[in-house]
Amino acid sequence: MSEEEAEKMLLDLKEKAELMVDLAYSSLIYNNKELAEEVYELEEHIDKLNDELQKLAIEDAKKGELNLNEALAIIKLATSTEMIADAARDIADVQLREIELHPILKESLLETDEIFLRVTISPNSILKNKKLGELHLASETGMWVIAIKRGDKWIYDPGKDVCLKENDVVFVKGNKEGKEHFLALAEGREKEL
């Protein structure tokens, strides 16, 4: 594994782990089973990814490209990321079980200033076919895109050049105040940024 690959891998794991924790709590906050199922899917994906990563580390150690400690570091990192993913799944599991949620739960979870949204980009939305870089969503709405789900494909922490497309499922984070504006834009009700 080259340094570059190792760097990409670590950033990728960080983003996915953070996203899972976000999604899991959000599934409870918004009482949303779909989100909870998303967490389950993502957890399986991370499991696979971690298996690959661990094999890669062992292979590279065998070839002498990584020393034992380096390979061990990568294996440990994969294991810990899997642990976080499993824990996120356990949180989402609460949403999927048919147990009535304790009112305290919702109250506690809602008491944060940062909110998390999952929106589908409507065909009428002015956000579609525009690059994130030209939209300036963070400054215009106070919300920023942390992930996009396009069909089966996930784009994590999308860069400035990523274009939003019709039917993209967008995961955004930001201030409470920006929520309505962003929703209206994505659903095509609001035509101006």
Partner: peptide
């Protein structure tokens, strides 16, 4: 129990972070 399940998961997350 649902609340405790979440608490337990939150602790697991922090343990994993400690391992990292």
């Amino acid at each position: 129990t649902a609340i405790l399940q979440i608490a337990e998961a939150a602790e697991t997350i922090s343990d994993a972070a400690g391992d990292i």
